Amino acid sequence: MLKFRFIKLIPIVLFLGIHINTVYGQVSPPGLGKAKTASWSVLGLRRKLDSAGTKEALTYIGLGTKSTPDDSNPFHKQAIWVLNHEVYHKFAPNQQYSYALSYRRQNVYDEKIPYHNEGVEQEFRLYGRYAYTVKLNERWKWKNTLRQEFRKFFTADFHKAEENFQFRTRLKSQVNFKISDKNKQELALSAEGLFAISKLNEPDTWSSFGYKETRLGFYYMTDIPKTPLRLDVGYMNDLIKGYDQVDFGVHYLAVDLIWNLPYHKH
């Protein structure tokens, strides 16, 4: 059933990709809340937007599933689907900014056994990102990123959600190691901290700004020979503040398949 829903979304990606790009970097999983394990799958399109290669874009559809806090099946429950479009501009040899618009539809489950589905929460997200990359040598590079988000929430029928909107700050540091020039094979190790403040609808008040979670990632990335496709396979460990029902955080398996399109002058 999940596979069928995902296949139906592919034409939307192909349509949006006409306006799109080549950013070599994995699509990190979104946080899927309380669980023991989770999965994240992406189909995307990337295209260069100028002949110099300084501007590019990425559009993708992502599908997330998860286990309950009591089992280890990462495909047990439908968790989220995401439609995301981001434009990048490398304005200096080692500096880049980007801006993005995202729509997310996430299933909400009861926190007590048998973890019934309580409904769906919708989210519209705007964010900007600044990245500074240091090339340490021919094989190693170090990238530090600041990402600021605005998140607006609705129920499934666009009524008020418990949380009205949120401002979230994300700080990420990532080290990439080039394995081989053949197929542009790389390994990436990352750590990201998330901090947020929210405006609530019920009660009508602000939360306090503070630390929310840490996400640790490890990825293998490679071009698929004789195709325009790039494959990213990775693992993420999500350490959620105050969630001690599982040991060592929530474990994610992630797979991205990205179709790279070259620049075409109109």
Rank of each mutant, 00 (worst) to 15 (best):
L2W: 03
L2F: 05
F4R: 04
F6G: 01
I7E: 10
I7Y: 08
K8Q: 08
I10E: 10
I10N: 05
P11C: 02
L14E: 15
F15A: 15
L16Q: 08
G17P: 10
G17R: 03
G17E: 08
I18K: 13
H19Q: 07
I20C: 08
I20V: 10
N21T: 10
N21H: 11
V23F: 13
Q26H: 12
V27N: 13
G31I: 03
L32P: 04
L32W: 01
G33M: 04
G33V: 05
K34V: 02
A35P: 03
T37C: 09
W40I: 11
V42N: 09
L43N: 06
L45N: 00
D50Q: 06
A57V: 04
A57M: 10
T59W: 07
Y60H: 14
Y60I: 03
T65G: 08
P69H: 09
D70L: 13
D70E: 15
D70I: 15
N73G: 09
P74D: 03
V82E: 14
L83Y: 04
L83T: 00
H85P: 02
K90D: 08
K90L: 01
A92N: 05
P93D: 02
Q95G: 04
Y99S: 09
L101P: 03
R104S: 09
R105S: 11
Q106H: 01
P114L: 07
Y115W: 07
H116A: 11
H116V: 06
N117L: 13
V120Y: 09
V120L: 12
E121S: 09
L126W: 10
Y130W: 15
A131R: 14
K135E: 08
L136K: 08
W140H: 15
K141E: 14
K143E: 15
N144E: 13
R147H: 01
R147F: 00
K152N: 11
F154P: 01
T155K: 11
A156Q: 14
A156C: 00
F158S: 06
N164D: 15
F165T: 00
F165E: 01
Q166M: 13
Q166N: 07
R168F: 01
R168D: 00
T169I: 03
L171Q: 11
F177Y: 15
K178A: 13
I179R: 00
K184N: 15
K184Y: 13
S190K: 02
S190Y: 02
A191G: 13
L194G: 03
A196P: 01
K199T: 03
P203Y: 13
T205A: 14
T205P: 01
S208D: 15
S208V: 12
G210A: 13
G210T: 12
R215L: 10
F218P: 06
F218A: 15
M221L: 11
T222I: 05
D223L: 09
P225T: 06
K226I: 03
K226W: 07
T227P: 09
L229V: 02
R230C: 04
Y235Q: 04
Y235M: 06
D238G: 03
Y243S: 04
Q245T: 12
Q245I: 08
Q245V: 10
F248M: 10
H251W: 04
L253C: 03
A254C: 05
A254F: 00
L257V: 14
I258Q: 12
W259R: 10
L261D: 02
L261H: 11
P262Q: 02
Y263F: 14
Y263P: 00
K265E: 12
